[in-house]
Design a binder for these strands. Structure first.
Lengths: 212, 212
DNA sequence: CGGATCGTGACACGACCATGACATGGCGCG
DNA sequence: CGCGCCATGTCATGGTCGTGTCACGATCCG
């Protein structure tokens, strides 16, 4: 069953690390904490409840328990031991995955695709930029500019390239418009706009997103 | 305690109807049978056992009893009166909820998986949306819009994407139609539509379901 | 030192969106 | 079959904020 679940979840894009006992699981947990733990109660060595309590004592990693069908005592004991949810065996990968997503959402750990650059994080899916955890209010064009530049960090983008990629409707105005936009962008994401860290000027050529 | 449980269970997506006496409960039961009854033994008027027997005589609604700690007599008498399970006071909402789910599963009435977002719960299987436990009357298009947005929380959906996914029959009208639909949706699920919590505007890009 | 390049701030126009009203059409109910 | 309600698409309005432009000052380079 373990191998079956590992295969099914892997095929759905999850990184799965399956272990064979509670001891291995706890060790693995210290080395590389996962986003969610799926814990069977039937274990060799220390039992599932004890594993659950130890995981809960060590941190707040969400836990989904696998229990035998109809064993109400296990369910209640499991939840009291600190589990976040339970799934009865035999388990369908689809159901387990739904519960995993629900639990992850509940504890607010939905794994977003976040890019981090020093104090700056960029969420391309949600179009949210945060600086030291605080969201930065970027205007649409400023945001497109940042996305374009940060899409290829370290590469210099000419003003003409930026005019075409950021201003989608073919634009043939003053290329100084790019300067103005960069300026406004810097004012919002840089600590000291006189010494920019993220959007750097390459005199005579254009702009570059750093640090590499 | 009644109000505390009502609040806690409502926040977990259950529709709760609390009453103050056995008579009220029995009356309510006839008018709108619930999926499960949580019944305290300490009641004004007719006592809990009698209420339990009458409920059992009227139908097969599952009953969970609240008993004083360690009172074995109550437990036995309660189960003989027809209760399906019991929980000792003081009761933790989490424990009660686990028992409720266990009992509902036993009688084959497990409710569908609910997604919770603050005061909002979404039942994708039953297509029911509730706000603070009260069902929200959404129009078909509004519901599809909410399901589409909340399917990938935190992700920005462009108006074009929404037109294609929510209005299945390829639609090429004014994309402002999306605005109107969002507006109507907000009026029903947001506390303050001027400061939306669930459906957020991302100026220049589209809409996003939050909270992140 | 002079010219080119870039940063900075001000400002006015316009894009973008919320909001409400209104016409239409579908569906249920009598 | 007719009526009425509700959902839906369209439009107009108003307000907010983003954006393009300009002028001036700072800075860098030859």
């Amino acid at each position: 069953m373990r191998e079956g679940l590992e295969l099914a979840l892997s095929r759905h894009g999850h990184r799965v690390r399956a272990v064979e006992s509670g001891e291995q699981g706890l060790e693995r947990l210290r080395a590389d904490p996962p986003d969610v733990v799926v814990l069977d109660l039937m274990l060799p060595g220390i039992d599932g409840f004890e594993v659950c309590r130890r995981i809960r004592a060590a941190g707040d990693v969400p836990i989904i328990m696998l229990t035998a069908r109809g064993d109400d005592f296990d369910v209640v004991a499991g939840l009291e031991a600190g589990a976040d949810d339970y799934v009865v065996k035999p388990v369908q990968p689809r159901v387990l995955e739904a519960r995993m997503r629900a639990v992850l959402r509940r504890v607010g750990r939905e794994q977003a695709e976040l890019e981090r650059y020093r104090d700056l994080t960029i969420d391309r899916a949600g179009l949210v930029v945060t600086k030291r955890g605080e969201p930065v209010g970027l205007a649409p064009t400023e945001l497109r500019m940042l996305l374009e530049l940060s899409g290829t960090p370290g590469r210099v983008h000419s003003r003409q390239q930026l005019l075409e990629s950021v201003w989608e409707h073919g634009y043939f105005g003053d290329s100084r418009l790019v300067d103005a936009c960069v300026q406004r962008l810097r004012a919002k994401i840089e600590d000291d706009s006189a010494a920019p860290v993220y959007v750097q000027t390459v005199r005579g050529f254009g702009y570059r997103f750093g640090p590499v």
